[in-house]
Amino acid sequence: MDSKVVVVTGGASGIGRATVLRFSEEGYAPVILDRDAEAGAETLSLLGSEPVEGQFIRADLTRKAEVTAAFDSILSARGRIDVLVNLAGGTFHKGAIHEVTPAQWKECLDLNLKTTFLCAQAVIAPMKQAGRGTIVNTASNFGITGGAERTHYAASKAAIIAFSKSLATELAPHGIRVNTIAPGLTGTERVRGKYDADEWAALSGTLPMGRAAMPEEIADGIFFLAGDESDYVTGATLHVNGGMVMP
């Protein structure tokens, strides 16, 4: 019960999994909120004999009732939430603007932006009560540059940056910090799966550092923003992208 608690949405795989492992190494009890129970179980199994126990909760984070239930159960079991990392989301479908259906648009905005809003809302009361806490939301290089055939995704990620700044201002008087991590091209299984080896090498080669990020490198940035090292940082966006975008 004394361990710090981190809730990682989308924590079952990819950057989320790396983030769960990083916080666990640092002594946090990680709670994974994700739709994918199988991957969630696998992530928990990777915690191995880490000193603190992890937990998986299956939830559709676009539904307020499910979000509320999940956070209520975390609070009643653990009594605290120190860090919220909103990583749930993704691109899901690319397409030219005339091909993007309103349903696809809504799905993309819901999965990225609305989940971020609902989960942030759910931790405000306990963090205010504790007089401390940190929230890390996830943007993307596309939230800065935009991207062809990613209008919905880019819109959701730019929105997350503005949401984070607004929330940072709102919560600063309560000692709660809110920051944004912005990964660029990152070699998660899901992203890697979209390209063959040659395409991937060519794409990675376009980054100034000549390669894509490893999920662990994004997790390192998230841990910096969430922990005491960044005690005086709020409303900021940290880009971990090998120089892909320099806003």
Partner: peptide
Amino acid sequence: RAKFVTGQTLV
């Protein structure tokens, strides 16, 4: 921990 962070301004 920041080896992939470059060209950035950390406020």
